[in-house]
Nucleic acid binder design. Structure first.
Length: 300
DNA sequence: GCCCAGGTGAAGC
DNA sequence: GCTTCACATGGG
């Protein structure tokens, strides 16, 4: 049993990865990142050797952490499959070592149900309230700040809509409640999703209220490892429009088709680099990003 | 105050 | 098929 390990890994940008809008429970504390993986409260730190991890309570092994962080993935091999165009080159250069995590499906699904038309900072706040309210405390001494596991579907299913709304999730509360109930009563089997192909898995998730194509793709990519899933949100739509179709307005359907054919077998990875690039390329001190509202056929 | 946010679903044409 | 709108809430 141990509480510390160093995971030797290269080309891993821990801060970029934990802060890139795929997971919502990681908080920077000094030079470390504090979060919860399953039932484990853990603190991570980037070192020259790799990633140093410290858990709140002793653990028998570290497979759960390697899996979550995907430290065994050959990122160089993934990058080689990206199209050799200028936007991708810049996106990768903007955050070398950016990775995809492999999250627990329920937590990922629930988090992204809560994500719609919310800024990432607000999603974090809602998820934090939800965990504080309904999550089981993690083992070990949690001072100074309490750490809790993500609440189970059963626990959420047992809550009232008003209790969920009290976590400030607004109109997303009925969707979260319905999803929790379907999983708790076995109507939806999140483990079975693993056995389906991409289209089948996506269709299965989209049966849930409040889960459309975008959220389904996020869950397929961030929790199930469908690398071809390519979530298109407002940032990615803007990225594709500006970087690949600068002269004419492309329909959403056209953008989706382009995304599905241009970025290769690890399109989801490419998407994450583009997303992070778009979100961070503007200098906050220089003011907001120029928001060009999509127009119908700008005259050049 | 105003605009927008890792959207979705329903209603209108 | 496409466009518009409501839906809660809060950051900037």
């Amino acid at each position: 049993m141990a509480t510390e390990i160093v995971l030797r890994v290269r080309q891993y940008n821990l801060a970029g990865t934990l802060d890139s809008g795929q997971a919502f429970r990681w908080q920077q504390v000094d030079d470390s990142w504090q979060g919860v993986v399953g039932a484990h409260a853990v603190r991570l730190r980037q070192t020259p050797e790799g990633l140093e991890a410290r858990t709140q309570a002793p653990v028998a092994h570290w497979d759960w952490l390697r899996h979550f962080l995907q430290t065994d993935l050959d990122i160089a091999a993934v990058l080689q499959t990206f199209p050799a165009d200028e936007p991708m080159r810049q996106a990768v250069a903007a955050c070398p070592g950016l990775r995809l995590l492999r999250q627990e499906p329920w937590e990922c699904l629930a988090s992204f149900i809560l994500s719609s038309t919310k800024q990432i900072v607000q999603i974090r706040q809602i998820v934090a309230r939800l965990c504080e309210q309904f999550g089981e405390p993690c083992q070990g001494d949690a001072r100074p700040c309490p750490s809790r596991a993500f609440p189970t579907p059963e626990r959420i299913a047992a809550a009232t809509e008003q209790e969920l709304r009290d976590c400030k999730m607004g109109f997303r509360a009925p969707s979260l409640l319905a999803a929790a109930r379907e999983i708790a009563d076995g109507t939806l089997d999140l483990e079975k999703i693993r056995t389906l192909d991409y289209a089948g898995a996506r269709a299965e998730l989209m049966k849930l209220r409040g889960v459309g194509g975008k959220i389904a793709d996020c869950v397929l990519l961030f929790a199930y490892g469908f690398d071809g899933a390519f979530p298109v949100d407002v940032w990615i739509e803007r990225a594709l429009q500006e970087l690949y179709f600068p002269r004419r307005r492309a329909s959403e359907k056209r953008l989706r088709h382009f995304a599905a054919t241009h970025f290769g077998p690890h399109a989801g990875y490419a998407q994450q680099y583009l997303f992070h690039y778009m979100r961070t390329r503007s200098n906050p001190a220089a003011g907001p990003v120029a928001k060009t509202k999509p127009r119908t056929n700008e005259k050049s």
